[in-house]
Design a protein around this nucleic acid. Structure first.
Lengths: 147, 147
DNA sequence: CCCAAACGCTTTGAACTTCAAAGCAATTAT
DNA sequence: ATAATTGCTTTGAAGTTCAAAGCGTTTGGG
């Protein structure tokens, strides 16, 4: 492969690995595993969402999520609320404690984006967005093929 | 936050999640978990590496890696080779079967990069590389702070 | 030279995560 | 009414990870 090819590959791979590990550090809270933090975040981003839907977002089975919600409820981060119009359905609600976690996550993202933008001019930024969009739509296509 | 800010955040987050899931699909082989595939890849990228060093690369304990190597050896992907000059040390070697897995991983990357490059002009590409580098160095800095 | 300390890997036991499948309660359709 | 479906929970098994203990090998101090 040619030089540009290999450069892009390199930088994408290392960046990706970096983000994975840094996010793990940024999102480590005492008494919470990474998985649990992800559940909390999903519940914050989509409050009043039922177990099944939340499980789909997180790509786990409802059984797995049910277990996770139980422990997070016990730890004081989530609440179960039975729907009155259909009492089979249970909505998940984040507590204030959960929202505090989410707030730190958002701050982490803000900081990251600010670091990116600081280094680029206006036109460079739009090229970056275009490129990332392009990559993403490629992947979206790929994924819908599989499914 | 302003529009550019939120756009970049959006596209980075969705792209990141896409890559995570797509790579899981692309790298799913019958009889191998994602973790196992990652161990195989590390062993291919750094052949003749001792257990301890490989464990550090993968960010797991030597105990965990020892277990993983045992099962991958049993499945025919890795080999243990005791060093003659220091018989405490064990190097890990990939078998041909492991290299075949790695080959598919590389092909996946090639395809991904090709998709990116196809959508951008030469100067756009260099801006992308610059931007990604910038993000990465920001993270590298962050990480060394923690450590 | 010998023995203690250090080193490198493996084993073990516990904790956690996840899933598939079975179970239970509520709703819908026949 | 009651059978089928839906939504969530429970259960049992498998996989992953870690800390700590264990075992063989090497190194260093006396």
């Amino acid at each position: 492969m040619d030089a540009a090819h290999s450069t892009i590959n390199q930088v994408l791979v290392t960046l990706f690995n970096h983000i994975l590990r840094i996010e793990e550090n940024a999102l480590s809270f005492p008494g919470l595993s990474i998985r649990e933090v992800h559940v909390i975040e999903a519940a914050c981003e989509a409050p009043d969402t039922r177990i099944t839907a939340l499980a789909q977002m997180l790509h786990v089975t409802t059984g797995s999520l049910s277990v996770a919600v139980t422990t997070l409820e016990r730890k004081g981060y989530l609440l179960r609320k039975r729907r009155e119009d259909d009492r089979r359905v249970i909505d998940i609600l984040p507590t204030e404690k959960a929202k505090a976690i989410q707030k730190k996550h958002i701050a982490f993202h803000q900081e990251m984006i600010a670091a990116v933008m600081k280094q680029l001019t206006e036109p460079e930024l739009s090229i970056l967005v275009k490129a990332l969009h392009g990559i993403d739509s490629y992947f979206t296509e790929k994924e819908t093929q599989k499914a």
